[in-house]
Computed example of a mutant assay.
Amino acid sequence: MLIIDFIGIVATICLIGIRYPHYVLLAISLHELGEIVMAVLFNGQIDTIVAAGAFGTIAVSNYNTSLIGTLLLFSGSLANYIASSLAGGIAFEPTSRLLNPLSTLKYPFAVVNFRLFVLACLISLWKIFV
Protein backbone atom coordinates (compact mmCIF):
# COMPACT_ATOMS: atom_id res chain seq x y z
CA MET A 1 0.00 0.00 0.00
CA LEU A 2 1.28 3.45 -0.91
CA ILE A 3 0.32 6.39 1.28
CA ILE A 4 1.29 9.92 0.23
CA ASP A 5 1.52 12.39 3.10
CA PHE A 6 1.31 15.88 1.65
CA ILE A 7 1.97 17.56 4.99
CA GLY A 8 5.29 15.74 5.30
CA ILE A 9 6.19 16.61 1.72
CA VAL A 10 5.39 20.30 2.25
CA ALA A 11 7.37 20.29 5.53
CA THR A 12 10.30 18.71 3.71
CA ILE A 13 10.12 21.33 0.96
CA CYS A 14 10.15 24.09 3.59
CA LEU A 15 13.11 22.57 5.46
CA ILE A 16 15.19 21.55 2.43
CA GLY A 17 14.72 24.25 -0.15
CA ILE A 18 11.68 26.44 -0.58
CA ARG A 19 13.33 28.12 -3.56
CA TYR A 20 13.73 24.84 -5.48
CA PRO A 21 10.60 22.74 -4.86
CA HIS A 22 10.99 20.82 -8.13
CA TYR A 23 14.44 19.64 -7.10
CA VAL A 24 13.13 18.71 -3.66
CA LEU A 25 10.34 16.62 -5.22
CA LEU A 26 12.92 14.90 -7.42
CA ALA A 27 15.12 14.22 -4.38
CA ILE A 28 12.12 12.85 -2.46
CA SER A 29 11.34 10.52 -5.37
CA LEU A 30 14.95 9.38 -5.41
CA HIS A 31 14.79 8.81 -1.64
CA GLU A 32 11.71 6.60 -1.94
CA LEU A 33 13.13 4.78 -4.96
CA GLY A 34 16.29 3.99 -2.97
CA GLU A 35 14.21 2.41 -0.22
CA ILE A 36 12.18 0.35 -2.68
CA VAL A 37 15.25 -0.88 -4.59
CA MET A 38 16.98 -1.91 -1.36
CA ALA A 39 13.89 -3.78 -0.17
CA VAL A 40 13.61 -5.59 -3.50
CA LEU A 41 17.35 -6.34 -3.46
CA PHE A 42 16.99 -8.15 -0.12
CA ASN A 43 13.83 -9.99 -1.27
CA GLY A 44 11.67 -8.24 1.30
CA GLN A 45 7.88 -8.23 1.30
CA ILE A 46 6.92 -4.53 1.13
CA ASP A 47 3.77 -4.00 3.19
CA THR A 48 3.43 -0.22 3.35
CA ILE A 49 5.22 2.79 1.92
CA VAL A 50 4.51 6.19 3.43
CA ALA A 51 5.90 8.82 1.07
CA ALA A 52 6.32 11.88 3.29
CA GLY A 53 9.64 13.28 2.18
CA ALA A 54 12.28 13.00 4.87
CA PHE A 55 9.61 11.80 7.30
CA GLY A 56 8.52 8.81 5.21
CA THR A 57 8.76 5.17 6.20
CA ILE A 58 8.68 1.78 4.57
CA ALA A 59 7.39 -1.37 6.28
CA VAL A 60 9.02 -4.59 5.09
CA SER A 61 7.60 -7.68 6.73
CA ASN A 62 10.79 -9.77 6.89
CA TYR A 63 13.39 -7.25 8.05
CA ASN A 64 11.94 -4.62 10.38
CA THR A 65 14.09 -5.30 13.47
CA SER A 66 17.32 -6.81 12.16
CA LEU A 67 20.53 -5.36 10.76
CA ILE A 68 18.98 -5.42 7.30
CA GLY A 69 16.06 -3.42 8.73
CA THR A 70 18.50 -0.74 9.82
CA LEU A 71 20.07 -0.78 6.37
CA LEU A 72 16.60 -0.38 4.85
CA LEU A 73 16.00 2.57 7.17
CA PHE A 74 19.07 4.39 5.83
CA SER A 75 18.79 3.27 2.18
CA GLY A 76 16.87 6.36 1.03
CA SER A 77 19.46 8.61 2.64
CA LEU A 78 22.20 6.62 0.97
CA ALA A 79 20.53 7.12 -2.42
CA ASN A 80 20.42 10.88 -1.83
CA TYR A 81 24.07 10.93 -0.80
CA ILE A 82 25.10 9.02 -3.91
CA ALA A 83 23.09 11.38 -6.12
CA SER A 84 24.64 14.39 -4.39
CA SER A 85 28.13 13.00 -4.85
CA LEU A 86 27.58 12.15 -8.50
CA ALA A 87 26.07 15.55 -9.29
CA GLY A 88 29.00 17.35 -7.65
CA GLY A 89 29.12 21.02 -6.82
CA ILE A 90 28.93 20.92 -3.04
CA ALA A 91 32.60 21.85 -2.77
CA PHE A 92 31.92 25.04 -4.73
CA GLU A 93 29.10 26.26 -2.48
CA PRO A 94 29.83 28.26 0.69
CA THR A 95 28.83 26.58 3.94
CA SER A 96 26.22 29.24 4.67
CA ARG A 97 24.43 28.34 1.42
CA LEU A 98 24.57 24.64 2.25
CA LEU A 99 22.56 25.21 5.41
CA ASN A 100 20.15 27.97 4.38
CA PRO A 101 17.04 26.67 2.57
CA LEU A 102 16.27 30.16 1.19
CA SER A 103 19.63 30.75 -0.49
CA THR A 104 20.29 30.89 -4.22
CA LEU A 105 22.51 28.01 -5.32
CA LYS A 106 24.86 27.39 -8.23
CA TYR A 107 24.36 23.60 -8.04
CA PRO A 108 20.86 23.14 -6.58
CA PHE A 109 20.41 19.42 -7.37
CA ALA A 110 23.54 18.41 -5.45
CA VAL A 111 22.83 20.67 -2.49
CA VAL A 112 19.16 19.69 -2.21
CA ASN A 113 20.09 16.00 -2.22
CA PHE A 114 22.76 16.65 0.42
CA ARG A 115 20.29 18.53 2.63
CA LEU A 116 17.75 15.72 2.32
CA PHE A 117 20.48 13.21 3.13
CA VAL A 118 21.36 15.03 6.35
CA LEU A 119 17.74 15.57 7.42
CA ALA A 120 16.67 12.01 6.63
CA CYS A 121 19.70 10.59 8.49
CA LEU A 122 18.84 12.63 11.57
CA ILE A 123 15.23 11.49 11.45
CA SER A 124 16.30 7.85 10.93
CA LEU A 125 18.63 8.06 13.93
CA TRP A 126 15.76 9.49 15.95
CA LYS A 127 13.55 6.55 14.86
CA ILE A 128 16.21 4.08 16.00
CA PHE A 129 16.87 5.55 19.44
CA VAL A 130 13.36 6.64 20.40
Rank of each mutant, 00 (worst) to 15 (best):
V10Q: 13
A11D: 15
A11S: 08
T12E: 07
T12C: 10
I13E: 14
C14Q: 07
C14N: 13
L15V: 15
G17Q: 14
I18Q: 11
I18E: 07
I18G: 15
Y20R: 07
H22S: 13
H22K: 06
V24D: 06
L25F: 03
L25V: 11
L26Y: 08
L26V: 11
A27C: 05
I28R: 03
S29Q: 11
S29I: 04
L30F: 07
L30T: 15
L30S: 13
H31Q: 03
H31K: 09
H31C: 02
L33H: 02
L33S: 06
E35Y: 08
I36F: 00
M38D: 06
A39E: 04
V40H: 02
V40Q: 12
L41S: 13
F42W: 00
Q45R: 11
I46Y: 06
D47S: 12
D47E: 05
D47H: 04
T48Q: 10
T48F: 05
I49A: 06
I49H: 04
V50E: 10
A51L: 04
A51F: 05
A52T: 06
G53H: 04
A54I: 12
A54P: 09
F55T: 04
G56C: 15
G56D: 10
V60H: 10
S61T: 13
N64E: 09
N64L: 12
L67C: 14
L67R: 12
I68P: 02
T70N: 10
L71T: 06
L71C: 10
L73S: 15
F74M: 03
F74C: 11
S75Y: 03
S75V: 10
S77R: 13
A79L: 00
N80W: 01
Y81V: 13
I82F: 08
A83C: 12
S84W: 01
S85C: 09
S85P: 01
L86F: 02
L86M: 05
A87E: 07
G88H: 02
G88T: 08
I90S: 06
I90E: 00
A91C: 12
A91T: 06
F92Q: 09
F92C: 09
E93P: 13
E93K: 14
P94D: 05
T95C: 12
T95F: 05
R97P: 11
R97A: 10
R97V: 07
N100I: 09
N100G: 14
P101S: 12
S103G: 15
S103W: 00
T104S: 14
T104A: 11
T104D: 08
L105T: 10
K106C: 05
F109A: 13
A110F: 00
V112F: 02
V112Y: 06
V112S: 13
N113S: 02
F114Q: 04
F114A: 13
R115N: 03
